[in-house]
Amino acid sequence: MHRCSPTHKLASIAVTTWILATVGCGSSEDPASPDQEAVVTVAEARGLAEGSVATVEGVVTVAPGTFNSATGDQGFALQDTTGGIYVSLPDTVDLDLDRRVRVTGTLGQTAEQTVLNTEAASVEALDGTAPVEPRDVTTGEVGESIEGLLVRVSGSVTRAPVDEQPYGFEVYIDDGSGEVQVYVHIVDGQPVIDMESLTVDQVIQVTGLAAQYEETYEVAPRQAGDLVVQ
Score class of each variant (00 low, 15 high):
residue 76 F to P: 00
residue 68 N to L: 07
residue 85 I to G: 03
residue 125 A to S: 13
residue 115 V to E: 14
residue 106 T to V: 15
residue 79 Q to A: 11
residue 73 D to L: 02
residue 101 V to P: 00
residue 87 V to S: 10
residue 85 I to V: 15
residue 116 L to G: 02
residue 98 D to L: 09
residue 85 I to S: 00
residue 83 G to K: 02
residue 72 G to Q: 11
residue 120 A to T: 12
residue 74 Q to L: 09
residue 127 D to C: 00
residue 125 A to E: 06
residue 75 G to Y: 01
residue 80 D to T: 13
residue 117 N to T: 05
residue 108 G to V: 00
residue 89 L to N: 10
residue 86 Y to R: 08
residue 82 T to M: 07
residue 89 L to V: 14
residue 115 V to N: 07
residue 91 D to N: 13
residue 71 T to R: 04
residue 68 N to C: 08
residue 93 V to L: 09
residue 103 V to S: 09
residue 101 V to M: 00
residue 87 V to F: 09
residue 95 L to S: 08
residue 80 D to E: 12
residue 101 V to R: 01
residue 118 T to I: 09
residue 96 D to G: 10
residue 69 S to G: 05
residue 112 E to Q: 15
residue 92 T to W: 00
residue 117 N to K: 07
residue 95 L to P: 07
residue 91 D to M: 06
residue 129 T to P: 00
residue 111 A to D: 15
residue 107 L to I: 08
residue 99 R to I: 00
residue 76 F to W: 06
residue 93 V to H: 04
residue 113 Q to C: 02
residue 97 L to C: 09
residue 109 Q to N: 12
residue 108 G to D: 15
residue 72 G to I: 07
residue 79 Q to T: 12
residue 88 S to V: 13
residue 122 S to K: 14
residue 94 D to M: 07
residue 71 T to E: 12
residue 98 D to G: 07
residue 87 V to T: 11
residue 118 T to F: 04
residue 120 A to M: 12
residue 104 T to A: 04
residue 84 G to F: 10
residue 88 S to Y: 02
residue 125 A to F: 01
residue 80 D to A: 11
